[in-house]
Design a protein around this nucleic acid. Structure first.
Lengths: 151, 151
DNA sequence: TAGAACCCTTGAGCGCACTCCAAGCAAGGG
DNA sequence: CCCTTGCTTGGAGTGCGCTCAAGGGTTCTA
């Protein structure tokens, strides 16, 4: 596993597959490098398509749960962290501000008594996403019309 | 017409109405202040929801066609300029970078011989928008699932 | 004739989401 | 032992899309 620090995800971004209908049922989890439940930062880079910089930055701003460290201080991500990153990726591409995701992360850290607030936040997000889809469909109609004109 | 320079579109932003299905057929064109085919910048602010700053900035970066001026140098927008701004607004909310819109504006200025290139650009954009909608629908599924769990 | 409201220009500043830098530590191979 | 690779840190820098400030002109109403 040799991933340079500065590699900006050459192709491995698994966030978008090239043409599939994106309704993959449960994508066979992460292509996890080994059977062990801990991964180095560069392994996480490989599976998420994020940069190591971004992963550390997420941690600094409080977007990540506590990440285990090796005896030498290196990060050791676990499966639940990868799952969390998958969710974050989804939320991110809804356009949700990072600050809101941090808020959600805080609620998760605060434990079960925040269930209601979390649901509320997710429902607001869902509403926004639906509105956004409607907006985009409106735009699509305009594009179709314009493209017609140019034909 | 009294619109302060610094007013950040108090409510008149016509981009999102509060709850409607957003599939308004043809919104009765612009609510054009008078029957004349020229508008001051603040009138354009009122109909587009953009700020005057943003309108001037659009002009500076080459996103606007040539805008007429009054004998004292003030901008006098015309109906075709408002139509252009409507299109720009649509493209903007697809997430198209401003630089690409500027490119499109350049093609328009270059005249009829760029029809093919314009269509190509719009088709690429349409493709992106479709992909984006699919992405968002995938995210929606995740949100639905999560919200289920919190119930 | 004053004052308010509106407009102009150039150039700097801001918020977001990263992105990179410099300096240094730790482990493994030759 | 040294070299390379990969990781660590705090803080500075970047690109985008605006957003505002400063300083001044014009136009309307009282």
């Amino acid at each position: 596993m040799t991933v340079m620090e500065t590699t900006p995800a050459p192709t491995p971004a698994p966030a978008r597959d090239q043409g599939g209908p994106e309704i993959c049922p449960p994508p066979p989890a992460h292509p996890r490098p080994d059977g062990q439940d801990h991964y180095t930062i560069s392994e996480v880079v490989a599976v998420t398509g994020l940069t190591a910089h971004t992963l550390r930055w997420y941690e600094r701003i409080g977007l990540m749960p506590h990440i285990d460290r090796s005896h030498t201080g290196q990060r050791r991500y676990r499966n639940r962290d990868l799952d969390w990153l998958t969710l974050v990726g989804k939320l991110r591409l809804t356009g949700m501000p990072v600050a809101d995701m941090v808020r959600y992360a805080e609620l998760v850290r605060e434990g079960e008594q925040t269930f209601a607030q979390r649901r509320e936040l997710l429902e607001r997000t869902r509403h926004d996403v639906r509105a956004r889809i409607a907006e985009l469909q409106g735009t699509l109609a305009v594009l179709d019309h314009k493209i017609d004109i140019y034909s």
